[in-house]
């Protein structure tokens, strides 16, 4: 029993990171129907920027002080991820707004490869794994035979809080309303005086910021990052977004938890589970798209041809 609970918890923690990234996919897809393939790379860039800030911007004397390092590292990650996301939108995707559907997807793949390579080539030592500082205490505590790390608590709390904040933003603010309107019908939204370009940029910014946070969390939890982490994380997050129902904010986080838990349980209970651990996200993706393409909670995208 403790083993099962332990795996459920591990899965939830894993799923929280995936869910944070999935929010970016779901918002962008919800508004412009683009699979922003480079979103996983935005997450990776967040992790690397956080690391850079820790190593180069924070004075050594302050590095042990969580109250200083955590906000600064997060801030650096958010700034970098948001900037890159907005630049990608501005330079690569926007010019293709009215192109046939496959063109932006191919562009997104190009952006993804270029960003990965940019980090590999230009980040000092980027070709190898980089160790990431354990900013938060690595301590654990026990509840009924289940071991929980403080980083896990931090991860899940952050993900849930950010999801709620995002939902409040989308449902309560003027800009959020504009986002919903644009995702329903961009033409009409424009006619109603909504600056749809701005809305799209905001979607990319929010997605980028959340991915940046996820990047730092990933670094803190695994204490190592490399330029490859974006690819798998991106696929898993996209799967989560589709699973929850694309365009649906709660769905994205729910999908993240489901993927995380499936992966944790499969790794634990299936023979040679850890060799196969990355296959489950793909299997879930195929199964969901085949049998329930609208996702668990239903998508909130008007299907347009």
């Amino acid at each position: 029993m403790a083993r099962l609970v332990q795996q459920l918890i591990n899965g939830t923690v894993l799923g929280a990171t995936i869910g944070l990234i999935a929010l970016g996919y779901t918002m962008v897809y919800g508004i412009i129907q683009l699979i922003n393939f480079a979103h996983g790379e935005i997450f990776m860039i967040g992790a690397f920027s956080g690391l850079y800030a820790y190593n180069h911007l924070i004075p050594e004397a302050l590095r042990q002080n969580v109250a200083v390092t955590l906000p600064l590292v997060m801030l650096a990650a958010i700034v970098a991820s948001t900037t890159v996301a907005v630049l990608a939108e501005r330079l690569a995707y926007r010019p293709l707004r009215n192109a046939p559907r496959l063109a932006p997807l191919i562009t997104a793949i190009g952006v993804s490869i270029a960003l990965q390579e940019a980090i590999r080539l230009f980040y000092p030592g980027g070709k190898n794994r980089q160790s990431f500082p354990r900013i938060i205490s690595g301590d654990t505590f026990q509840i009924g035979g289940v071991t929980i790390a403080w980083t896990s608590v931090f991860t899940v709390v952050t993900a849930v809080v950010l999801m709620l904040a995002l939902e409040a933003f989308v449902n309560r603010t003027r800009l959020g309303k504009a986002m919903r309107a644009t995702s329903q019908d961009p033409e009409t939204a424009r006619l109603m005086g909504i600056d749809t370009d701005k809305v799209i940029v905001v979607a990319f910014m929010l997605g980028g910021a959340l991915a940046g946070v996820a990047g730092v969390i990933q670094g803190v939890r695994f204490t190592a990052i490399d330029f490859h982490i974006g690819f798998l994380a991106g696929i898993k997050a996209f799967t989560a977004a589709v699973l929850g129902g694309i365009g649906n904010i709660r769905g994205a986080v729910l999908g993240g938890f489901v993927i995380g838990i499936v992966e944790a349980l499969a790794t634990e209970y299936l023979p040679r589970g850890s060799d196969w651990k990355d296959v489950w996200a793909f299997v879930v993706l195929v199964v969901v798209l085949t049998f329930r393409p609208q996702g668990l909670l239903g998508e909130q995208v008007a299907v347009r041809s």
Partner: peptide, 28 residues
């Protein structure tokens, strides 16, 4: 057979997933 009724960009991702599944299976 099961995937071709999907939208174009979903299809792209499913084929990507199959490609990765192939690689992981071959690897294991």
């Amino acid at each position: 057979a099961p995937t071709l009724r999907l939208r174009g960009d979903y299809l792209a991702i499913v084929t990507l997933a199959f490609g990765e599944i192939f690689r992981i299976v071959v690897n294991n």
